[in-house]
Amino acid sequence: MASILPFTEANTQRVASLFRKALRTAYDSSYKFDAYRLETIKIRQQFEVNRHISDPTELEEVIAKTVDKLQEAKHPDPYIAPCRPGGTKFQRNIEVPRTPLVPGDW
């Protein structure tokens, strides 16, 4: 992947996306909110330590390590909201179609 210069909008979006993925991964693996909150504070501190990296090569290395760490910590059975695709209530009550059931010109 081509290196992206630090402090640009593209890099900011990329790091923000990694941060959101890290938070979701922490949410999937914690059952209590207080444990999740402590984990989010640790994640934020880890991202803040690397906030001022200005060398593109070093930045790529840190991002690659973060991606590897997220892949390693990925939960095998992540939480899916019930009404979202893949959730337990997704399309449970599908609307009845308003079109005629038997096609034809009556």
Rank of each mutant, 00 (worst) to 15 (best):
Q91K: 12
G86Q: 04
L18S: 00
A64V: 09
L18A: 07
Y79C: 08
E60D: 15
Q45L: 12
I63R: 03
T99N: 12
Y27V: 00
S30M: 08
L70N: 00
D55P: 05
P78S: 05
V15K: 08
K74F: 09
R44T: 11
D77G: 03
S17T: 10
E95T: 05
P76D: 13
V49H: 06
L59D: 02
E39F: 00
K69C: 05
R37V: 00
A35F: 02
Q91H: 13
L101V: 09
Q46G: 06
I80S: 02
Q45R: 15
Q46H: 09
Q45T: 12
A81L: 04
K21Y: 03
T12M: 12
R98E: 15
I80Q: 08
F47A: 02
A35P: 00
E72A: 14
F90E: 03
P97L: 05
S29D: 04
L70M: 04
T12K: 15
D68Y: 07
D77W: 08
D105K: 14
E61T: 07
T40A: 11
R84M: 14
E61H: 10
N93I: 11
V102K: 11
K42M: 06
I63Y: 07
Q45F: 04
H52C: 01
S30F: 04
F7S: 13
L59I: 03
A10V: 12
V62A: 09
D68R: 04
T25I: 02
L59A: 06
G87C: 02
P6S: 13
V96K: 14
N50E: 06
E48T: 09
E58H: 07
P78I: 01
S17H: 09
D77N: 14
G86E: 10
A81M: 09
E72P: 00
I80G: 07
T25Y: 00
Q13A: 10
I41K: 08
P97H: 11
Q46T: 04
E60A: 14
A35K: 13
A73L: 14
E72M: 06
A10E: 07
A73Y: 04
S29G: 12
K69E: 10
L59W: 00
T8H: 08
L38F: 00
K74R: 15
F33T: 07
H75F: 11
M1Q: 13
K89F: 09
Q91G: 06
Q13S: 12
I4G: 01
